[in-house]
Design a protein around this nucleic acid. Structure first.
Lengths: 224, 224
DNA sequence: TGTTGTGAACGTCTTCACAGCC
DNA sequence: GGCTGTGAAGACGTTCACAACA
């Protein structure tokens, strides 16, 4: 039993995933130990923040020495649940959906797409990687049959809420939404949003905000 | 030496972009005014938070009435700089890069891809939308010629830092990085990261964290 | 000595409650 | 009366400084 399965902050979970990626690389390179400073540098974060993040898992390092690369990797793998592959379904096989279906980064991290759906007859039947695009009508049956717990929505905005409702009703617990609309889901279903246009707009705004300052005082900042 | 030149919090900027999207839809529907409550509901945020966000732009509503849809839309358009189209270049034309190059959401929001680059001879010369994929060697020349200020990186992780260096040296001020590595950039260059595997992992973790609680007390929460 | 783990200070974002104005 | 604008309070996340320990 864990002493405290107390909730790990969301921001910390995101960084743990990054640490895991770095540790995997280090382990593949034959490295056996790392210090928080080196690991933090490779992950692009503050060393003290990294140690605080890891402290949520209980002690995992050796004072005066550092962290055991393999042990810490395994610990993070367990906590993040990367060990057991989780079944995902993807709805909306446009350009972005196709790209995600093929994205190598998912398969190696405990996720497996088990079905792709689209409403358009021209898309249905297409093969992407190992999978064939299925009709949206089959969504409920397939989710039930595969026990998929994660859904990814890359449909046009107009139908995203409807797809979300159907996924939730079929038993999906977590939804990653790429459609540019806020989705409402029943309690017990998590929705996470990725809005690519917003990312670009924020970036552009921050950039333009810096330009006027360049005339007088040079702002010496850091980026990571 | 302004005590506060005009620093709008980053989180606020991200939401302003969402408000703008909702307002555009409302305006297209012929709507003339909205209350903060209704606008917040459509954007998936708290009404008080929305008012505070807008307060960074100075007064933009009428007490007792609400906000003028068209006027607020134009105000946000100006602040976010959507009016003047900004030139972007995209490096790495794999599945994700191709999808982004074709993504309709960007063109309508003040961004225009002016060039696509890839290192692979099989990709060079391909047409995506109106653009032809160019050799990575041309990057500096094209950035200079077009005055592009924004770069998007969708290359493999191994070459992302090198591409970042070249973009920065060529004059790009803002970089959106989809490669799963933290990038170091010189002062004055903003880097923003989108990590799709991390998004999925966070989502999956939050979902699995909720499962044990489902046995006893049902957690009644909201998702947006 | 060198590095982890952590309490405390700091800054940021969010939420609340209400004053101010139409 | 209704709704905006905003100071104050609270929650959250980050950073610092140092004690604990191999």
């Amino acid at each position: 039993m864990q002493p405290r399965p107390r909730s790990i902050p969301e921001a910390t979970v995101a960084r743990l995933a990054v640490y895991l990626r770095v540790l995997t690389t280090l382990a593949d390179g034959g490295r056996s130990t790392v210090s928080s400073g080196e690991l933090a540098s490779a992950a692009g974060v503050n060393p003290a923040g990294l140690r605080k993040d890891l402290s949520h898992l209980g002690p995992c390092g050796v004072r005066g020495v550092g962290y055991d690369v393999g042990a810490l990797r395994d610990r993070l793998t367990g906590v993040l649940g990367v060990g057991s592959a989780r079944a995902c379904v993807l709805v909306g096989i446009g350009n972005l959906g196709s790209a995600l279906a093929d994205y190598a980064g998912f398969g190696t991290r405990g996720f497996e797409f088990v079905a792709l759906f689209d409403a358009s007859p021209t898309r249905i039947g297409q093969r992407i990687g190992d999978l064939e695009v299925r009709a949206l009508d089959d969504l409920e049956d397939v989710v039930t049959a595969t026990g998929a717990s994660i859904g990814v929505i890359t449909t046009p905005a107009e139908v995203a809420q409807s797809v979300c409702d159907r996924l939730a009703a079929a038993g999906v617990r977590s939804i990653l939404n790429f459609a540019p609309v806020p989705l409402a889901a029943p309690a017990g279903v998590d929705v996470r949003k990725v809005d690519l246009s917003v990312e670009l707009q924020v970036l552009a705004f921050l950039g333009q905000q810096r330009v006027p300052a360049a005339a007088g005082t040079a702002s010496v900042g850091e980026s990571a």
